[in-house]
Design a protein around this nucleic acid. Structure first.
Lengths: 200, 200, 200, 200
DNA sequence: TATGAATGAGTTTTCATTCAT
DNA sequence: TATGAATGAAAACTCATTCAT
């Protein structure tokens, strides 16, 4: 990648970061392109040199940010689950860590408004080679325990949706249940799903 | 309720229905108050007699519509599951019916954009006495099978979130899996959750 | 006046008073007819049974209120000046009292926005027989000191404009001079005007 | 000042002038921003590039216009009074000219609705160095005749308020006295004020 | 007389996007 | 590449007034 291209990408990222901060505090529909360029320290017109239009920015931001966060979450969870003895406790620790990670991403959730799935939609290819590798190293351990790769992908997807949907409400609204109140149910549920899918 | 009040409520509902039709075809943010009043056959100012502003309408619409659809879904599912012999098949048929109902509500899902939970947030009180009764008659059958009422509420909530989250992506994007592709996994998963939560 | 008419007048006054309170706190242009009828406890349509339109109300209010206040001011000033020995001190006390009265009418001034003259325009007939009588009893004392009635009217008018204009700025903005700062100059000035006009 | 800034200021002035013309013919509250931009030959949005909102324009217009007119009035009066022999006739000619100038500014008066004081409030600093200089050259002649600078400022202010308040009613309503009818009284009154304040 | 739902013209304001520099 | 003034369509919302009851 040429120096020029690196510079361009960097600026693009700067715009995305500025937009993200504003989206967090004001929500997408109340953030004007004007606010974004001011925050990024560039001119109005410059914005359109990097993004086709506002929705182009949003699309890229959501994709970039949700991918980024998914990777972070998997990374954190994998680290915590690394020393688990048996499969059962591996999964339990992993799922628990995933929920913790969601709690830590509260702001992102608000912006994405349950659109975490913007990323999940490309599941399990993600769009970031590192993330894919991470995913495989995590799920690999389950493969030889009665799962096919395909079955595993679906189970993992369902588990992820389950966790993110329930966590979203619990974290942002604390209704009908707060996160700590629903966490044990959620962990049990996620494990049940994994087990149930293996049998299938 | 006086005749006047009934009339007012009816008109409010008419506005909500008009808005809903437009939201389905054009999405919320591309629908102007102007479009809504034209569709409802009322004057611009009249709108503001019934709703504080546009966001007030959206809030009420989402709540009303998601509640309404939840009831419909429960109704349909209950009917289909009525003759089930054992608990296992009762649950299976019920869950399957729930997914079918989601498919039938594709349009609603698009509008609510995963905000079905606007209704779920008041779970299991819903806000409509009929719905509550329905909910209790449905879940009652499980009560004597090792669930406490509280545990049942949480399990049911988690199952509902699971089904609606996964179905939403499957139905609206068909990515990463289409609804028929993911349905067996989803049913298994939901049943596992129920079973897993009972044990707990 | 019939009982019916009295009732009507009373309601009219109630509307005017309600409007006046709102005008004081929100200014005329930010007060809607709607606010007024709510405050007066009547229906929207009823308003139009008593006033042709909004500007009709304003006109009547300004006239009624400024006349009322002018009378109050003259009454207060006359009382204070009653025991004055010589003409000089009579005028001085009177003018001073007038300024005090203006200070006490701060709210009215804000509403009328220097339109106190709405009343002054009918000077010295006012529109209220009692006020006219009051005016004559006050100025009478000067008549035999070199003034013609006409000259006196003009002088009084000019003095009144002088006091109300200067007081208005002093009271509402305290710029460029506060009321106590400018008061001595104002009294001197008013007296000079009276004296100067007598000579003429 | 850069060329860019000059250009911007020029456009701002153009908008103000267009608004002023409309305010004169239709009054402030019946002039829409839309009318102003049409008259100024700019786009709707451009207006908001130069003024925060409509009231911002009004504020700036009143200040700018009243300052401008004050300068013109002083200029005219000074020229006419230049050759006066004694102080008495200097003041008399000056005051008379001031009244003439007010008559010539009838339109402005209507727009400003007695808000000439928007400018007077910054008296005697005005906000325009040229005006200040003018003011000092005019009043200078009185300084050595028993006035302190401070006393002079107050006297001048009071005289100005007197003249503008009385003239306003006389010119715009011709009630209770027309301008020519009240002029001699007004001149005498103003002179009396000046004399009376000198003595003090 | 009294009501208050309905009206819709009219206003202000926003904001994504373009384009000359 | 970068700028930022200019645009104007489009949006939300207000409010004086009417009129059927």
């Amino acid at each position: 990648m040429s120096a020029d291209q690196t510079k361009k990408l960097e600026k693009k990222r700067r715009i995305i970061e500025s937009a993200f901060e504003l989206f967090k505090s004001k929500n997408i529909y109340n953030t004007a392109v004007d606010d974004i360029v001011k925050a990024a320290g560039i001119a109005r017109g410059t914005f359109y040199l990097y993004f086709k239009d506002k929705s182009d920015l949003i699309e890229q931001l959501v994709f970039y940010k949700s991918g980024e966060s998914m990777k972070e979450m998997m990374l954190l969870a994998a680290k915590r689950a690394a020393d688990a003895q048996d499969l059962e406790s591996y999964a339990r620790i992993f799922i628990d860590a995933l929920i913790d990670a969601m709690v830590g991403q509260k702001e992102l959730l608000t912006v994405l408004n349950k659109n975490m799935s913007a990323c999940l939609r490309s599941f399990p290819s993600f769009g970031d080679p590192e993330a894919v590798e991470l995913y495989h190293s995590i799920t690999g351990r389950l493969l030889d325990h009665g799962y096919t790769q395909e079955g595993l992908d679906r189970a993992a997807y369902v588990v992820f949706e389950l966790i993110s949907a329930v966590s979203y409400d619990a974290i942002t609204y604390e209704k009908p249940f707060g996160i700590e109140e629903i966490r044990p149910v959620l962990v049990t549920a996620a494990l049940s799903v994994l087990r149930g899918c293996a049998a299938a």
